[in-house]
Amino acid sequence: MMVELAAQVAQVAMVLCLAPGLTGLVRLTKARLVGRRGASLLQPYRDLARLLRKDALVAENASWLFRSAPYLVFTVVWFTASLVPTFTTGILLGPTADLIALTAFLGSARFFTALAALDIGTSFGGIGSSREMMIGSLAEPAMLMMIFTVSLLVRSTSLVDVAEILATGELGIRVSLLMAAVALVMVAIAENARIPIDNPSTHLELTMVHEAMVLEYSGRHLALMEAAAMVKLLLYISLIGCLFIPFGIGSRAEGISGFGLGLATYLLKLAAGGVALGVFETSIAKMRVFRIGEFLGGALLLGLLAMVYLYISRAM
């Protein structure tokens, strides 16, 4: 109990501390690949600290919703990130980490971001939230399909159980898992507003989605929104890590002895994920908005195919 509590507290602190560093790593990789020196890994931390020191300007016609949304969104995303097993599955809140609940949490964070963007009544907020809702309505079914496939295979929707069973490797390598993994990666790219769906570093009117929604925020509000986006990126990489490359993760039975290896492999996975994302983003161009449907439709299809295939291989 005490060990689990300690692991949980450590994880809550760790996801928050590592998230800006991960974003910094992605930016550094992208900068290096295009031949720039790039800012140091610590730059996102400095940015957040600077934003926190600044005054928050709020539009005159903003309601309470606009002011409370950053806190809500950040808290929800942070909480969700602390549910996903990172270095060990033996965390106190592990049993509550249900995959479907996880999707619902992220969906509500998205809902409040979009609502706050509409609240001010600027046209950019409107464009951003309508596009975000389009992406969300396409990404969530794909995410759920992926979850159903994995859950049917393991016979549990609890993330902790799934990670532990998959880590033992007794299920072997399945074609369904390959398809589900590809689907999750595609969903993660869309959910985190990365290229080719959205460009995280653009403020070009016609293409921005996530940036359009947080355009009106400043000061500590903006800091919270940006931190939420960073934690969300870390969350998705952790999720991919613990579902599809669960090797090295500490199990509940191992307790404290599994922490060392778990932490080392987790940091390795995180770094590999960040670099891979940077390479991928550099090598691909942004998509037209109307092609997002095809991209996410492909993810949904893969999830569906994975499930069909799972039933077939069961029947054999």
């Binding site: 074609v175 390959l178 590809v182 295939y309």
Partner: peptide, 14 residues
């Protein structure tokens, strides 16, 4: 061996 063979087959389909 089976699993990897299936995985590769699946990759061709992908």
């Amino acid at each position: 061996g089976y699993d990897i063979a299936h995985l590769l087959d699946g990759a061709v389909l992908l």
